[in-house]
């Protein structure tokens, strides 16, 4: 698979409360941060409602809000459907973050850390080389993308789309990496929970660091998780995976606290 794990996350069922808002928030994050690419066609209304576990009425309401925000364009007739529109203005992170209360972020982080930790622990006990191969490939793919991003940042022209292709690709790869760790646990339920956590907060949580130090630190954390799984060290794998999520959430909460 390439990036489709991250799409599964975007389209995983939403919770019972505030369904229209939840659908809007999730798709808006995915579009604003480039997890869904500009011009990409969304599944049909019936299919998308089915994937998200909401009624078509709820979905239509959410799509209407997204159209108003300019994030989705709907064309009628043959070849019609709803298409992703990546905003041309720079990403306004504050606007995205305002949709989340600090308490909610903290709770999402607690839950996600528990899932990621438990999955990594079981992966270290159960993974065979064939289960680790996709993780290694994801690490290589992330390194290749960050190489390109770093190269452009050093000498390339500034401006362009609000979220560059490199950071969107990194968010997708990060999501894929975590789903692969969860799958290595051999637990379908933990994998489904991992996908759900990513759906709820993934694109913001895995927003790449702007500075090289932060980026290197995240890369080192990924490598350490994979190495603990390869070594068959369950406690270490769990601690590292929990810390990885907790630190990412702490950074996101700091950003959230900075906006009113």
């Amino acid at each position: 698979m390439a990036a489709s794990g991250s799409h599964l996350a975007v389209f995983a069922p939403v919770g019972a409360t505030g369904r229209v808002d939840a659908v809007v928030r999730r798709l808006a994050d995915a579009i604003a941060l480039g997890v869904l690419a500009d011009g990409e066609q969304l599944p049909s209304e019936a299919e998308l409602a089915g994937l998200l576990g909401v009624s078509t009425v709820t979905l239509r309401e959410a799509l209407m809000a997204l159209r108003q925000q300019g994030l989705v364009e709907t064309r009628r007739g043959r070849g019609g459907g709803s298409f992703v529109r990546t905003p041309s203005e720079p990403l306004e992170l504050g606007a995205r973050l305002r949709a989340y209360a600090v308490d909610e972020l903290r709770d999402l982080g607690d839950h996600y850390a528990a899932i990621a930790g438990a999955a990594a622990r079981l992966a270290a006990r159960r993974a065979l080389p064939a289960d680790v191969a996709p993780l290694l490939r994801s690490l290589d793919d992330m390194a290749a993308v960050s190489g390109r991003v770093a190269g452009r940042a050093a000498g390339g022209p500034s401006g362009g789309p609000s979220v560059d292709a490199g950071s969107a690709a990194l968010i997708r790869l990060e999501g894929r990496f975590h789903v692969e760790v969860a799958a290595a646990s051999q637990s379908a339920r933990l994998t489904q929970e991992e996908i759900r956590s990513q759906a709820d907060i993934g694109p913001l949580l895995w927003l790449p660091y702007g500075d090289a130090d932060g980026h290197d630190e995240v890369t080192a954390q990924h490598r350490a998780i994979v190495e603990a799984i390869l070594r068959g060290d369950p406690d270490q794998a769990r601690d590292l995976a929990e810390r990885h999520v907790c630190e990412a959430m702490e950074r996101l909460i700091e950003l959230r606290l900075a906006v009113d």
Binding site: M1, A2, A3, S4, H7, V35, L36, A37, A168, R172
Partner: peptide, 18 residues
């Protein structure tokens, strides 16, 4: 149905699977 457009971000590359 999987996204089988290699240009798409959701492209499902099945050739890696065992």
């Amino acid at each position: 149905l999987r996204d089988l457009d290699p240009a798409s971000s959701a492209f499902y590359d099945y050739t890696h699977w065992g």
